[in-house]
């Protein structure tokens, strides 16, 4: 595992990974395993699984996070930067091209019809994504309180979601500290 990968090769590999991902970052693990563990033997499977697990609990885009971890592991900071540019390359240009086509036809009946229908599909996807998060969101009953408090703030005030995130993190630390103290007394 000592062979150093050239930055160009690293970039091209991540361009390929970014282009393969469709609809979400969850298929990135098998793709990366094939490229970096099996084909090129550059990182161990254990490391990759660790990166995947930690990436999900870090802020930001999960697929970008894993790419940054792998890039950093292979070529330190410059590798991390190349990896994130690589993985965003194909999605970036595909959106830019697609958006310019769509904006041209946006006001046709044809496009309006598609978007009317797709708007319904998006609602289904939003509920589905919420349910997937819901399944992993609650460690105990107090966590439900955080959920409903957050939901209330978002629905009935105009406060920024950033505020909800920061206060829930603080509440988490206070709550866990209190529980810990309760146990040790």
């Amino acid at each position: 595992m000592n062979t150093k990968m050239s930055l160009l090769r690293l970039f091209l590999l991540f361009v390929k990974i970014g282009a393969i991902l469709l609809g979400g970052g969850y298929v990135i693990l098998p793709v990366m395993k094939a490229e970096f563990v099996e084909k090129n033997k550059l990182i161990s499977e254990d490391d990759l699984i660790d990166y995947f697990a930690i990436s999900q609990s870090l802020p930001g885009i999960i697929a970008a996070n894993i790419s940054i971890f792998v890039g950093y592991k292979l070529r330190r900071t410059i590798g991390a930067i190349i990896a994130v540019i690589g993985v965003t390359f194909a999605p970036f240009w595909s959106i830019v091209l697609l958006a310019s086509v769509i904006s041209k036809y946006l006001h046709t009946d044809f496009m309006q019809g598609i978007f009317w229908g797709v708007g319904i599909g998006v609602m289904v996807l939003m509920v589905q994504a919420t349910r997937e998060m819901w399944a992993k969101a609650f460690e105990d009953k107090f966590a439900y309180l955080i959920f409903f408090a957050g939901l209330g703030v978002m629905l009935f005030t105009n406060l920024s979601p950033v505020l909800v995130v920061i206060s829930s993190a603080i509440i988490g630390v206070i709550y866990k500290s209190l529980i810990n103290r309760g146990r040790s007394v």
Binding site: A129, F138, F147, L151, V164, S168, I170, V173, K176
Partner: peptide, 19 residues
């Protein structure tokens, strides 16, 4: 771990509110 404990339900609440 404590921060993640609080963030999981909060992130879910954010998404639920938009849905």
């Amino acid at each position: 771990k404590a921060v993640i404990y609080g963030l999981k339900p909060a992130s879910c609440a954010l998404l639920a509110s938009v849905a």
